[in-house]
Design a protein around this nucleic acid. Structure first.
Lengths: 144, 144
DNA sequence: TATTGTTATACTCTATAACTATA
DNA sequence: TATAGTTATAGAGTATAACAATA
């Protein structure tokens, strides 16, 4: 949890600054996605499905870094709204392949633009070079 | 929510990288603090109280960016463990001043070292100059 | 026997409305 | 009436155990 301004302790911790900045970007994105009645996790799921059409629910759970039971209501919601579909696998009838619908593809295209705009607005204190540096440093951390 | 590796969509978003990196640092800190049966929010609270001795609960809530009702169980826990105390204010008997106990001060000193070590371990992919850059960029974002 | 997806459950975090006691 | 702290409650997000159908 973030604190605001105790000087000399929390302010020197990357973890603290990371949490405050992440909260700011997340809140901005949540606000923008709410116009489409979607949460960030659902946007991420759509993006993962687009890049890995036909993947199984277990794969999606791993990609989203969540547990398999959490995939169920998330995917139910996307299916209710006809943005994605579960298709029974031929060879292994226990599993499903997950695909985007045409509507899902179309909406995702919009969502990508929304996410990009949100990113830029919430980081408006930085210039493009600083954004590039930041993205590089963060990627090094989470890929390590 | 983070996804792992859809290429070309999520990977270019600072918000996505921020969330993945933040999760990594948070998990590391949670693991280390668990030896003292504390959560990150309780560590932050102790640090804020040290820097603002005698502050009121409403101030603490604002500093921690949480709602006043959430302060109650947090502070109860710290008081149960004799790390902090609520002292009735003389002039306004509705409010309390919050202070660290001697034990709280001593523990906080340990916790600062733990948080610092956690920060460095979870960002071991970076050198010191990169850590400085990152802290500067993140601070610019959340202070804007 | 092991695995995919699911259900049920619980614990944490977060947010809001309503209550109390003081002012 | 307004404010500080509290209580009660509800909604997300997250995690685990156990179950059904299939392998």
């Amino acid at each position: 949890m973030p604190a605001a301004a105790a000087d000399g302790v929390l302010e020197d911790l990357i973890g603290y600054a990371l949490r405050r900045a992440q909260l700011k970007l997340f809140q901005n994105l949540i606000g923008r996605l709410s116009a489409h009645d979607l949460r960030p996790a659902q946007f991420s799921a759509l993006a993962v499905i687009e890049q890995n059409p036909g993947l199984m629910q277990a794969d999606l759970a791993r990609s989203l870094a969540i547990e398999p039971p959490q995939v169920v209501p998330l995917l139910n919601k996307l299916e209710e709204r006809a943005l994605a579909v579960r298709v029974r696998c031929k060879p292994d009838k226990r599993s499903y392949g997950i695909f985007l619908s045409k509507a899902g593809e179309a909406l995702l295209k919009e969502l990508k633009q929304i996410a990009h705009d949100s990113d830029r607005e919430a980081t408006s204190a930085l210039d493009d070079e600083e954004r590039g540096q930041l993205l590089r440093l963060l990627t090094k951390i989470y890929q390590a």
